[in-house]
């Protein structure tokens, strides 16, 4: 059977890696247990030994492993990021996922044979930008930002010939990735430098007369009535007063799901489909990876998928889904 799209799955920790591999991932992505990767949450990620073992497990089952070193190194502390790249190479990673210019440059010089995937944190959203990274840093693949419509994805691939990975399921940011400072504006910690957005230790909920209030640091992000499901207080999914009226000015608490668009994405020349969610548990990984494995295999066999399996709705953010920017009119 020919592969329809490469299924790239989150491995937040060694257990999730094995679950994803067993559920049919073509590739998994993971990071080290520090601020060198953009999912630096407590209890997640890998130490060097765990990565080596995880790679052996995946490779024995025909699955590739990508290591995300996709935060922006801090001034004067760049050594930790260089070590992360060196160690990923030494452990036998199939690629590193990188966003920072200096780190791309280091990787290209020190490990020319190691595949470089451009992280979504670099937000390369134009042909010009993609060519810049291909020409200057010889990146093999670009993870496209979640801000493009399907016809734009198609144009970009046509114009650049790039090997493209796109997001298919999971959490959805509305800002250009790698350049959003809303989290650090409120908490002091950001995805760019610390690898965290809306860190859990800054989150609180409290009951008030009007409903359940969610806060990030001291900032009130939302207030849910008894008929609404509560959502995690991510700044860009908050409800705020604009011209005196409460509304989700950026985006609603909602998850991305592109299952109905898979054939259009395939036709546009996309190589790989990425499942977001290294911060999610093994149940999420098992559920989402097996569902997508089934759908991609059906498509590869020429069978039409039968829509979104109900089980995916139960794990989607806010239990609701959107096509995000892939659909016209999102902007």
């Amino acid at each position: 059977m020919t592969r329809y799209l490469e299924l790239v799955c989150p491995a937040g920790n060694p257990v999730a890696l094995r679950v994803a591999v067993d559920a049919g991932a073509d590739s998994v992505y993971c990071g080290f247990r520090d601020c060198t990767n953009a999912r630096n949450y407590p209890g997640l990620n890998f130490d060097r030994q765990e990565l080596r073992a995880g790679i052996a497990y995946a490779h024995a089952r025909g699955c590739r492993v990508f290591v995300a070193v996709n935060t922006f190194p801090r001034a004067g502390k760049i050594g930790s990021w260089h070590r992360a790249i060196d160690d990923a190479a030494a452990c036998g990673a199939d690629a590193v996922i990188v966003a920072d210019l200096g780190l791309l440059d280091y990787t290209m010089r020190q490990h020319p044979q190691l595949r470089r995937h451009l992280s979504v944190q670099a937000a390369a959203a134009s042909a010009l930008s993609i060519r810049f990274y291909m020409e200057k840093f010889d990146v093999s693949r670009v993870v496209l930002p979640r801000v493009l419509a399907v016809h734009e994805v198609s144009n970009l691939i046509g114009q650049t010939g790039v090997e493209a990975e796109v997001f298919g399921f999971g959490s959805l940011g509305t800002m250009v990735e790698g350049r959003c400072f809303l989290s650090s504006y409120m908490t002091g910690r950001s995805p760019s430098s610390d690898g965290v957005c809306a860190p859990a230790e800054c989150v609180s909920y409290r009951e008030e007369a009007g409903g359940l209030v969610s806060c990030l640091s001291d900032v009130m992000i939302n207030c849910f009535g008894s008929d609404e499901p509560a959502a995690y207080p991510t700044p860009c999914k908050g409800r705020f007063l604009v011209r005196g009226r409460p509304r989700y000015i950026f985006e609603e608490p909602i998850g991305l799901n592109v299952i109905p668009l898979l054939s259009a994405l395939k036709a546009s020349g996309v190589t790989a489909l990425k499942i977001e969610g290294r911060q999610r548990g093994r149940n999420y990984v098992a559920t989402v990876v097996s569902a997508f494995r089934g759908i991609l295999d059906a498509l590869a066999d020429g069978r039409a998928p039968t829509g979104t399996p109900d089980v995916l709705r139960t794990v989607a953010e806010g239990q609701r889904e959107t096509f995000g920017a892939y659909a016209k009119g999102w902007r």
């Binding site: 801090r74 200096g102 780190l103 010009l128 930008s129 810049f132």
Partner: peptide, 27 residues
């Protein structure tokens, strides 16, 4: 936007506050 560098044909430029220059390597 870094893509702009490709349009400069080697001309000198100012890197704006919206470009991520977090460390000496990128500098």
């Amino acid at each position: 936007d870094l893509a702009c560098i490709s349009l400069l044909n080697g001309k000198e430029f100012v890197s704006g506050p919206l470009v991520n220059v977090f460390n000496e390597g990128t500098l």
